[in-house]
C-alpha cells in the first residue's frame, strides 16, 4: 500500500510540519520579526492615492482558478484592498476569468465592505466575469482600464503572457501598480512595468504579514528556517558529490 520510495518525501513533510508547529507555538509567546515587504506596505497608500485622484481601484488575479496557490494567496490580499477601498470610499473593480474565483471574490469583497461599515458602496457588478479565454481576458481588462482609468491596479495571482499587456496598459493610464505572482517567467515583466512587486513567496506570506497574527507569522518564520536547511543540504550535497558521494538517489521518487 505505502509507496516505500516516497519515504524521503514523507520524512521531509513531517520534519517541515514539526518545524511549523514549533514556530507557531513559539510565536504565541514571543514577538516574531519579519523583514519589511515594500509591496505590502504600499497597499494602503496605493488605495489612498486612487481616493485622492477620485478613481477606482482594479484587482485582477489572472486566468487560473482557486486550485492555484497564488490565486488562493491573492484572496488574502483582495480582502485587505477591498477593506481599504471601502474605508476610503473608492470604487472597486474586479474582472474575472474564472467563475469560481468570481463567486469567492464577490463574497470576500462584500464582507470587507460590510466590516468597514459601508455595504452600500459595493454591488455584485463590481466583481464580474469576463471570459476564461486568455487574450479575451487581457482585452477585456485592458478595456476596463482604458474606460474607467483606475488610480491603483493590483495584479495579484498567476499570470502568463497577458502579464505585460495588463501591466503596460495600467501604466499608460497612470495607475500605481502592485503586482505579485509565483510565475518566475512573468516576474521580470512585472518588475519592469510595475511600481511594486511581490516576488514569489512574498505573495504567499501576504496574509500573515497583513494580519500580523502570531500563528501565521510563526509559520513564515518556519519557512525561513526550512529554506536555511535546504540551502545547507544543497551545500553538503555539492561537497559530498565532489568526494564521489551522491545524495540524489535519496530524493528519487520513481
Amino acid at each position: 500500500m505505502f509507496e516505500a520510495q516516497k519515504t524521503g518525501i514523507l520524512l521531509v513533510i513531517l520534519a517541515l510540519a514539526a518545524l511549523f508547529l514549533y514556530w507557531i507555538r513559539k510565536a504565541r509567546t514571543q514577538e516574531i520579526h519579519l523583514r519589511r515587504i515594500p509591496g505590502l506596505e504600499a497597499l494602503d497608500d496605493a488605495v489612498g492615492r486612487a481616493a485622492e485622484m477620485g478613481r477606482p481601484v482594479l484587482f485582477a488575479t489572472g486566468i487560473l482558478g482557486l486550485n492555484n496557490i497564488a490565486v488562493l494567496a491573492a484572496m488574502g490580499i483582495l480582502r485587505r484592498v477591498a477593506q481599504k477601498a471601502a474605508e476610503y470610499q473608492v470604487g472597486f473593480l474586479m474582472p474575472n476569468a474564472d467563475p469560481i474565483v468570481m463567486t469567492t471574490a464577490q463574497e470576500i469583497v462584500k464582507e470587507a465592505y460590510q466590516s468597514a461599515g459601508r455595504p452600500d458602496l459595493i454591488s455584485e457588478a463590481s466583481v464580474f466575469y469576463l471570459t476564461s479565454d486568455q487574450f479575451g481576458y487581457a482585452a477585456g481588462v485592458d478595456g476596463v482600464m482604458l474606460r474607467e482609468k483606475p488610480g491603483a491596479v493590483f495584479l495579484q495571482g498567476y499570470f502568463y503572457a497577458e502579464s505585460l499587456i495588463l501591466a503596460e496598459t495600467a501604466q499608460s493610464v497612470g495607475a500605481i501598480q502592485i503586482a505579485g505572482t509565483t510565475a518566475t517567467t512573468q516576474l521580470p515583466f512585472f518588475v519592469v512595468a510595475c511600481d511594486y512587486v511581490l516576488i514569489g513567496e512574498e505573495m504567499l506570506a501576504a496574509s500573515a504579514v497583513l494580519s500580523r497574527e502570531p500563528n501565521l507569522l510563526g509559520s513564515i518564520k518556519a519557512e525561513d528556517w526550512a529554506k536555511a536547511g535546504i540551502a545547507l543540504f544543497l551545500l553538503v550535497a555539492v561537497v559530498l558529490k565532489i568526494f564521489g558521494i551522491d545524495l540524489a538517489p535519496l530524493l528519487n521518487t520513481r
Binding site: T184, S207, L216
Partner: peptide, 29 residues
C-alpha cells in the same frame, strides 16, 4: 530563478499546512 522557485515551493507547502491546520482560510468569508 531557482532561488525564487525554492522559496515558492516552501511558501506553497507553508500555505498548504496553514490551510490544513485551519490557520488561514482565504477561501472563506
Amino acid at each position: 530563478q531557482r532561488g525564487i522557485q525554492i522559496g515558492v515551493a516552501l511558501g506553497a507547502i507553508g500555505m498548504a499546512l496553514r490551510i490544513l491546520f485551519g490557520l488561514e482560510r482565504p477561501y472563506l468569508r
